[in-house]
Design a protein around this nucleic acid. Structure first.
Lengths: 206, 206
DNA sequence: CCACTTTAATAACGATTGCTATGGAAAAGA
DNA sequence: TCTTTTCCATAGCAATCGTTATTAAAGTGG
């Protein structure tokens, strides 16, 4: 009862579709319409792959979504590296927010944030999907916290900095921008929100 | 083909359920699980009313949701009055955010914001439900903008205040707090986010 | 060319979706 | 009591849901 295409297979009919390309289409569809509110037939239409092939290649709908979620979230290490590279924690978070503002209003992608859609997704059966999205957010939060702590230790930020509050604010603003983007807000509006949310950051010590 | 119970009816079997109470239960169910991801059978279970009675009393699922949405949002005039009563626009918005933080983490109600769930709801068929939620947000935004403009005119806020950015920020923080609440954040965390988002507000002139 | 392996396509599965037709029960007015 | 009006409950509608069994097709290794 082997269902997945074994990586080291030597024979058999080859896949007629690009697995990675199909996953990308699935991600965009989930991004547009959410997890539960995207049907398998929506996915077959978008991916150009029939249902049995989707099940053979990805397992089931939930696994396909979780794989799409990982693809959307990307490698946390990349975010961590980018934030370490920024001159200050403040710059790092500002960049993160501005990138989100641009991502949520991109022309080639759906509006808003896939993680935000997943969080709002409703029924009890989708609890583990919500948890997966929450987990991604927790990872991002931890990276922000860590970057702020570096700046407190190195000097630019005062010891009394409310680290967790700033991280939670950044997270909330990000997810809030997703809602505004879905409402039709343009890129400039979101960038203004991102900048306005940074005004309250503590001033550098020196 | 009269379906709704006419307000001025003189005879006939009386309703066996309290319409207002049933609507309240429906609102809580939608609040918990979103629009599309709440089924009619979820509603019948929560409301204690059979499907045909729901349809007779409320029309269809969409109309029931929209009525629940209006009940959730309340009278915009109340918000407007509350904000006019606050000594400054800053206090008014701070109160709004703190009230949201408390609402989203209430014990007797689902976590998060019903409007946020509605915005994220997915399929194209639910576009008008999304629009209805967006409309409520636009109303709130307009009230915030108006209150800030009053303070600019009366003096407490400088002429150069970025009115729309502050209003959009408040909206984004509100909807973002909803996501954090859904992730399990506690009331104190949300209140910290609310306060942190206000730190950047311009200082009073005098 | 023949086995063997794997994917593709068709068709359908049972379950659930939103919604409603039908028939009888419950109240009020005559 | 009888008629009229309205609502409740059962049962079921067509459609879609996520998923899969079945069979044909397309490759590789011998």
């Amino acid at each position: 009862m082997e269902k997945t295409s074994a990586p080291g297979r030597k024979t058999g009919r080859p896949l007629s579709f690009d697995r990675d390309e199909a996953l990308e289409k699935a991600m965009l569809t989930f991004w547009e319409s959410g997890y539960e509110t995207t049907s398998i037939s929506d996915l077959t239409a978008a991916m150009g792959v029939t249902a049995p092939s989707i099940y053979a290649a990805f397992g089931d709908k939930k696994r396909l979504f979780l794989e799409a979620l990982r693809r959307y979230a990307g490698d946390p290490g990349d975010l961590e590296n980018a934030m370490e590279l920024a001159p200050t924690a403040r710059d790092a978070v500002a960049n993160m927010l501005e990138n989100a503002a641009r991502l949520f209003t991109g022309d080639a992608t759906p509006r808003g944030c896939l993680l935000a859609s997943a969080a709002a997704t409703g029924s009890k059966a989708a609890a583990d999907v919500r948890d997966a999205a929450a987990k991604e957010r927790r990872i991002i939060r931890a990276i922000i916290v860590k970057r702020i702590e570096v700046d407190i230790e190195r000097g630019p930020l005062p010891d009394a900095t409310r680290t967790e509050a700033l991280a939670d604010l950044a997270l909330a603003v990000t997810q809030g921008m997703s809602v505004l983007a879905r409402d039709g807000a343009d890129r400039e509006t979101l960038l203004e929100v991102a900048r306005a949310s940074m005004v309250g950051w503590p001033q550098p010590k020196a």
